[in-house]
């Protein structure tokens, strides 16, 4: 679905990402794990075409970003850190803003609000929402264009345990029912081992390890991470 082929990115001679090779397959949940400053956000910015790599290729379903960025972005949803919401607008109006751009049916707004459990409060202004509610609405916003891939950057930041559980269940639900592929950038290893089917470890701008997790076995990402760091 999404491929990074020998992607390099640098700012003023300083290498931020080096020889990135990733292949995101359809229907999986990928955890992009790394410490702060490892290059996760830069990688996400490259996915959305906000930055352009100096060398290498980024392909979505086989086609390059350079020629049809708009068409590619139509198939990718995003939630970058905290949900992007207009506080003075209601939950419904916030989703409608994005729906009009994607040109989807109005019923899609109601359907997504139902899925994220906010249909009862959809007329309330989002400034009155809790952080957990805002993040769920952010997921609905990311899903409005019926994307094939949803990219989440640190979605659990600042959430309480209940909010984290709600968000986790929502991601799993969307992955199973809608078949949406998720790429979640995070540094919360314990949380990611509960939902991820694949992990990608990134450190100092380089992919140091990637593997498909065997969900039938107990997973300890922290131990795996420590082992990789020792072997480096």
């Amino acid at each position: 679905m999404l491929e990074f082929k020998d992607v390099n990115y640098q700012i003023r001679q300083k290498t931020i990402l080096k020889n990135i090779n990733i292949s995101i397959e359809k229907g999986n949940i990928y955890a992009l794990l790394g410490t702060n400053g490892a290059g996760k956000t830069t990688l996400i910015k490259l996915i959305f075409g906000l930055l352009r790599p100096q060398s290498g290729k980024i392909l979505f379903e086989g086609s390059s970003y350079v020629y049809n960025k708009i068409e590619v972005l139509r198939k990718i949803g995003s939630l970058i850190e905290h949900a992007s919401l207009y506080g003075h607008l209601s939950a419904f109006e916030n989703i409608e803003q994005a729906r009009r751009i994607y040109g989807t049916e109005k019923s899609e707004t109601y359907r997504l609000l139902e899925i994220v459990g906010l249909k009862d409060v959809m007329q309330q202004k989002t400034k009155r929402f809790s952080l957990g509610m805002k993040q769920r609405l952010g997921i609905a916003l990311a899903m409005i264009g019926k994307p094939k891939l949803v990219v989440l950057d640190e979605p659990t930041n600042g959430l309480d345990p209940q909010g984290i559980t709600e968000l986790r269940n929502l991601i799993l639900h969307l992955n199973q029912t809608e078949g949406t592929t998720f790429l979640i950038a995070s540094h919360h290893l314990q949380e990611m081992e509960k939902i991820a089917t694949n992990v990608i470890f990134i450190e100092r701008g380089q992919i140091i390890h990637q593997e498909k997790l065997d969900k039938t076995l107990p997973i300890n990402l922290e131990a795996l991470y420590n082992q990789i760091i020792i072997n480096l």
Binding site: F48, L50, I70, E71, L73, R74, I76, S78, I80, E81, H82, A83, S84, L85, Y86, G87, A98, I101, Y102, L141, G145
Partner: peptide, 18 residues
């Protein structure tokens, strides 16, 4: 500022629009 305060710039630039 409406876009800054709601963190919506980031979202706007990831939408399929120029």
């Amino acid at each position: 500022d409406v876009e800054h305060s709601g963190n919506t710039w980031k979202y706007l630039f990831t939408l399929p629009i120029k």
